[in-house]
Amino acid sequence: MAYLIVLGVIVLLVIWIIGMYNGLVRLRNQVKNAWSQIDVQLKRRHDLIPNLVETAKGYMKHERETLEEITKARNLAVQAGSVAEQGKAEGQLNSALSRFLMVVENYPDLKANQNFLALQEELTSTENKVGFARQFYNDQVQQFNTRIESFPTNMMANMFGFKQADFFEIETPAEREVPKVKF
């Protein structure tokens, strides 16, 4: 009888450990998924910028510097590797874009251009999507990290090498907000 009870306890323990492990794997996958969503939006933004610069070029003959700055920031962002690096590069791209959008106010012809308006809507939306995807990603990271730190899952995490995920922060506090796009 005692033998059976011991066996039962061991079986329950094993089931519990499996559940704990699977829970960690599920959370890690959620974090990965959430990151891939940010990634898609960042790529989309990087693809939009050359089009935007191309459309604006014809109208903004005297703003070569602003346009070059955007292109440079965009190329840096494309090459960025880690989550932290990406955050820094996106921050720079954001400030370049908001300067550009400020300058656009002086070019009514450009603001009336259908192609430009469509691009602007795409850009606004992509900015929003980056913001929302970041929100969602950070939520998932928070959940995952809390789980890894708390007892008894922390032992499990150590044993199987689960590492804390990085939050995605866009650097320099002034540019945390997505640039305001005016129509």
């Binding site: 969503q37 939006q41 469509a118 809507e121 795409e122 606004t124 939306s125 929003n128 999507k129 929302f132 995807a133 969602f136």
Partner: peptide, 12 residues
């Protein structure tokens, strides 16, 4: 495009 974009944003 705008309506669809907004739905996509909220989906995310």
């Amino acid at each position: 495009p705008q309506l669809y974009n907004i739905v996509e944003e909220m989906k995310i």
